[in-house]
């Protein structure tokens, strides 16, 4: 019984967040959202989800704190190195035939994926002709992405991943270490536009050659995944590429026919033309 009440409270909170702030988590995978909201309730010191809802409705300052629970900011540079290796070896050779390129990193979190791609494009000589769009719904994550500063103790893993991705340079060429932090080079973000964009409530981006959206759709339910994939299809240029997270796929999507597998094992797809 108490269980059922809590599920109802969560439903109401998500509805309230949508109506009041236009953040729409109503169709996110519920088990994980529930886990994180219960954590928020405990850590933020509320006795019920309803009292947390009361507070966030009346106090906008509460919203970012709640967003930190509702969105999952877990990332890594060159996460799944084989994905980046496949981009390097199979996708970038195609992209190099275009005079100018647009790349969209959707759900870019705190920027690790953005800097990974920027480095990859530099190494392959495509950076200068590329504009990168890095988007997320969490303003604090976007700000962190823009800053490009990471704890130094994470760099070891990043370096290892970069090597495994077939990196042609040393990761240390791209950051300076100071006070326990690695500050990534400004030149990496010269061609990056950071902006607030939701895959749930916002519209298409035009004429992308590559969209990388990793470990975002795993948080969506099926219909929402479908919406996002439709958005990607409409945002891609002819024969553009879409890369997903290693446990995400187009298999169950109604848009599956709109794509062909390009590197199947790495969840890299290509827009199929009718």
């Amino acid at each position: 019984m108490a269980e059922a009440v809590e599920d109802l409270e969560i439903q109401l909170l998500l509805e309230a967040l949508f109506q009041r702030y236009h953040y729409d988590f109503r169709h996110y995978a519920r088990a994980s959202i529930k886990r994180r909201l219960i954590q928020a309730r405990i850590q933020l010191g509320f006795s019920t989800i309803s009292s947390m809802q009361d507070r966030v409705l009346h106090d906008p300052a509460m919203l970012p704190r709640l967003l930190d629970y509702l969105t999952v900011q877990v990332s890594e540079m060159f996460r799944d190195p084989s994905y980046f290796r496949a981009l390097r070896e199979k996708v970038l050779p195609h992209l190099s035939t275009y005079p100018s390129l647009k790349v969209w990193i959707a759900g870019s979190s705190t920027g690790e994926e953005v800097y990974s791609l920027a480095i990859l494009f530099k190494e392959e000589g495509l950076y200068d002709r590329t504009i990168f769009y890095a988007t997320d719904i969490n303003p604090e994550a976007l700000a962190a992405a823009q800053a490009g500063v990471y704890a130094l103790d994470r760099i070891r893993k990043f370096t290892e991943n970069h090597q495994k991705s077939g990196g042609r340079s040393s990761l240390s060429d791209y950051y300076t270490a100071a006070y326990g932090r690695a500050v990534f080079d400004k030149s990496l973000k010269e061609n990056v536009v950071f902006s607030d964009h939701s895959l749930v409530t916002d519209a298409v981006f035009a004429e992308m050659h590559l969209i990388s959206c990793r470990n975002v759709m795993i948080y969506f339910d099926r219909p929402l995944q479908d919406r996002a994939i439709g958005l990607f299809r409409d945002s891609l240029a002819r024969k553009g590429f879409l890369g997903l997270g290693s446990k995400e796929s187009l298999r169950f999507s109604s848009h599956a026919k709109g794509f062909s597998e390009f590197v199947g094992g790495e969840k890299i797809y290509q827009r199929r033309e009718a």
Partner: peptide, 15 residues
């Protein structure tokens, strides 16, 4: 690995 109320599986990259 999580179980959803409707009897499906879900994966997550949470902390």
């Amino acid at each position: 690995l999580l179980v959803e109320a409707g009897g499906t599986l879900a994966l997550s990259t949470d902390e």
